[in-house]
């Protein structure tokens, strides 16, 4: 549809579109290929859990903090999950310092929905004193280098950091008071949602769009898939439109790619988490 292009973008769009006709991409990948994914965890000592994810040249870091606070009035027995995204100015010439704007807020909310709706964390296990005191899990996502497809990188770093996270052992006294003991326990992680963003350009679908591709595709859709292949969250982005067939095809692609990533890349972390 009518995205606004500068001269460079329109040249790149033409090139990218021409290559797509032969199922090729600028960086030599196939249409259904992700860039190289690398996950490191636990490098931040002050955080309860942390992860650094690189997706090609895109680099994002997530830190988890667990604190106590009051629950929401409509969910007195449930812990609280808070997701925040910051597009730090060091990551891209187009990011400015300041409070999150609509772009960052949309990203944070889509990542949050993926984790929340998949029930990745069992929030019912984070209640200390119903209506009064619960654990709050802060998921703070920071982008260090922006080279496209931040959504998928964010979601991947968030779940990796959650899998890596640990909190102090605690007991709850009869009067509802919280007492910390020695040693650590894992966060109650029970599902491993993976988000897959799919771009559409001139009728062709691609996964993991790079920065250059992201700028010129007509339509973008992000789909969060849980461990059983269930769809947990979706968000259509950009102004391009999709047909019903497009959406159904995108779901099939997302289910396949999410499974691959969960098994091949998150597998080790999940196994480690289960063992602990």
């Amino acid at each position: 549809m009518s995205n606004s292009y500068g001269i460079m973008e329109s040249i790149k769009r033409k090139k990218i579109s021409e290559l797509l006709k032969y199922d090729k991409r600028l960086d030599g990948r196939g249409l259904m290929d992700f860039r190289k994914i690398k996950i490191e965890t636990g490098m931040i000592g002050t955080a309860a859990g942390s992860a650094l994810v690189s997706l090609g040249n895109t680099k994002v870091m997530t830190g988890i903090k667990v604190e106590t606070g009051t629950p929401f009035t409509d969910k007195p027995k449930s812990g609280v999950l808070t997701t925040n995204v910051e597009l730090t100015p060091l990551a891209s010439p187009n990011f400015e310092a300041g409070p999150p704007r609509e772009k960052a807020i949309e990203m944070a909310r889509v990542v949050d929905r993926g984790i929340r709706e998949a029930k990745a964390i069992d929030l019912s296990k984070l209640c200390i004193d119903p209506g009064k005191l619960v654990f709050i899990v802060y998921v703070d996502i920071y982008v260090l280098n922006h080279d496209g497809n931040l959504f998928d990188a964010f979601a991947l770093s968030a779940i990796s950091a959650l899998l890596n996270a640990k909190m102090k052992k605690y007991t709850v006294k009869k009067n509802g008071e919280l007492k910390y003991g020695k040693g650590y326990i894992k966060l109650p992680v029970q599902n491993y949602p993976v988000e897959i963003s799919i771009g559409k350009l001139d009728g062709k679908m691609i996964v993991d769009p790079s920065l250059e591709e992201e700028a010129v595709v007509d339509g973008l859709i992000t789909i969060a898939i849980g461990k059983k292949g269930e769809i947990c969250a979706m968000q259509k982005r950009k102004t391009g439109v999709f047909s019903v067939e497009d959406i159904l095809l995108a779901i099939t692609i997302a289910q396949k790619k999410a499974k691959e990533i969960r098994e091949n890349i998150l597998g080790e972390l999940i196994a480690k988490n289960k063992k602990a």
């Binding site: 929905r113 929340r116 709706e117 998949a118 859709i221 849980g226 292949g229 269930e230 769809i231 947990c232 969250a233 979706m234 968000q235 259509k236 102004t239 439109v241 999709f242 047909s243 019903v244 497009d246 959406i247 159904l248 779901i251 099939t252 289910q255």
Partner: peptide, 27 residues
Amino acid sequence: ITPRNKEITLLQMDGTFTKEEFKKALN
């Protein structure tokens, strides 16, 4: 949707659907 040519201009989702349920809900 834009009703004349049935193009989807907004789509969001949260909760859990299987693909079959999603298809039904979308229609």
